[in-house]
């Protein structure tokens, strides 16, 4: 009996430890990225807007680690400064839609009846828009710019969270402990705060973590198409689009922001995967 049990417990412990290490590793990298984007103003070795016409399209060197672009601006500084738009905006965006969507979802589950129907049909409407078309429409109405691109992305991505929070809350509502809380005299607000939120936070957090990479790509994509951040604001997507004709001759100018996007998206996606595995009860003791 004990021989049959011990190996599975050991396997689980090993898996748990490995997951924990992975979590620390990717979490650490992600925090570094976020800190870098937050303090990007202080980290740039040069002014990312400073043009130096005597030193255009310079290859990477000791002074300019990633070279310079066609206006002689230091690429490393521009990539670092770009993290503010790319990473920080994405985090704000994902944080906002996760909170907003969850609130709507909980309201739907709690109120039911016509409130539920109305809000859910509205979310269906937003969900039915192809992202790019919607962003084009927003850009046409409100003009381009990174704020409007974020607005367009937020408008079409909150319904995912609303649906998730709604289904999770509905599943909880039939649980005996919710009825016990009601019989203990807890009001709606207290029940939501004490019993609903802690129980639905896990899946929402995982979705949000996995969404960071996707949103980063979408935002860069919109900027690449000229619907997001506009030059000279340093933003990775628009920097790539802006310099794409230099790819055959001065590849470092295009590839630096490209790799910045690649690595950031990868780190956040791997972190999201790890968090999901970590919260999975199957990997728990």
């Amino acid at each position: 009996m004990s021989q049959a049990i011990t190996p599975t417990i050991r396997v689980q412990n090993v898996r748990q430890n490995r997951l924990q290490r992975k979590l620390w590793f990717f979490g650490g990298l992600a925090i570094l990225l976020i800190l870098a984007s937050f303090f990007s103003d202080y980290l740039c070795p040069y002014d990312p807007y400073l043009q130096d016409m005597s030193l255009t399209k310079a290859a990477p060197s000791a002074e300019h680690l990633l070279g310079t672009d066609r206006y002689g601006r230091d690429m490393l500084s521009r990539v670092i400064a770009g993290s503010k738009t790319s990473i920080f905006s994405t985090l704000l965006l994902v944080g906002f839609i996760a909170v907003f969507g969850s609130i709507i979802g909980i309201i739907c589950a709690w109120a039911g009846k016509w409130v539920d129907t109305l809000l859910m049909r509205m979310s269906d409407m937003f969900l039915a828009f192809p992202g790019l078309v919607f962003a084009l429409a927003v850009a046409a109405v409100l003009g381009g710019g990174v704020h409007n691109a974020i607005f367009a992305l937020a408008a079409i991505s909150w319904p995912k969270y609303a649906r998730l929070a709604r289904s999770q809350t509905l599943a909880l509502q039939s649980a005996a402990f919710m009825q016990a809380a009601k019989m203990a005299g807890s009001g709606t607000c207290k029940i939501i705060r004490k019993h609903v939120l802690p129980n639905i936070a896990g899946p929402i957090l995982v979705t949000a973590m996995l969404d960071i990479g996707t949103m980063m790509m979408e935002l860069a994509g919109l900027s690449f198409l000229g619907l997001g951040a506009k030059p000279p604001i340093p933003e990775w997507g628009s920097m790539m689009s802006d310099t794409r004709n230099l790819l055959p001759t001065q590849p470092w100018v295009t590839l630096s922001p490209g790799f910045a996007i690649f690595f950031s998206v990868m780190i956040f996606n791997l972190l999201g995967d790890t968090v999901r595995d970590y919260l999975d009860p199957k990997n728990r003791k």
Partner: peptide, 29 residues
């Protein structure tokens, strides 16, 4: 009404929030 009437649920483990301690559950009311 719930100060005068209480219930013990058929499945006791399900009647406590998995994220709260038993003490939290007992002291809630």
């Amino acid at each position: 009404v719930y100060t005068r009437m209480q219930m013990v649920f058929q499945n006791p483990v399900d009647s406590f929030d998995p994220r709260c301690t038993l003490g939290d559950g007992i002291s809630e009311s």
